[in-house]
Amino acid sequence: MVFRRHILWLVYSQTTSTLTLIFLRVTKSYTENPNYLELLRQRDEGILTQMVLEETPKLYRCIARLVRDPDEVQNLVQETFLQALRKVENFRGESLFSTWLCAIGINLARASLRRSIRTDLMDEADIEVLQPRFDEQGHAIAEYPLWNPERGLIRKEQIRILYEAIERLPEDYRLAITLRDLEELPMDEVARMLEITEGNLRVRLHRARNALRNLLIHYDTNT
């Protein structure tokens, strides 16, 4: 059951001398309850239900962007909630509860990915090759091809190529791109989830995006 607050507003209009009844329904987040952590610790069914209802979509997205198999994603979502509830006293309130939850989910997803090792993953040297080159004076060595995303492959195909490339990125790059560019989470939140500085996150994004741009353009101008 979702906890809802109903507010009735009576508005008196002086110009028309009428009373208007405004009926507002506000969904209240479980985190607005000042005792939500204590209640979660006590495994209070009401707050637990609210938490699962509210957090499932975001948590699911974070995990499903990394792990392909939907059954595995479901298991990981459930395992995340379980782990979170078992160590809820470790949550220090330095981030949003949902950020903390996603960080747990991402760690579980990483462990799951490591169990299913792919053979075509890129390594650091592959990423390096895909960065632009400059001469000693700092000039670009080659002119960049005039690629226009509107004129190449259809958008859907371009997105498919990017997706495939992301799956082959080394894990650190893949996580950064997934959370920042696919999930569009704020920089500080992503940095917190990955336990790195924002500067560090920007470096990873930079190298990953350069690599993706290179792969996409190469594909797009050769087909």
């Binding site: 979509p57 371009q158 997105i159 990017l162």
Partner: peptide
Amino acid sequence: VIALLHDTAPPKPQPELVAHTL
């Protein structure tokens, strides 16, 4: 490239996932 990445559809959980999780 960033715009293309923003354009991907977010994965959605099955509606029964919440009940199963609970």
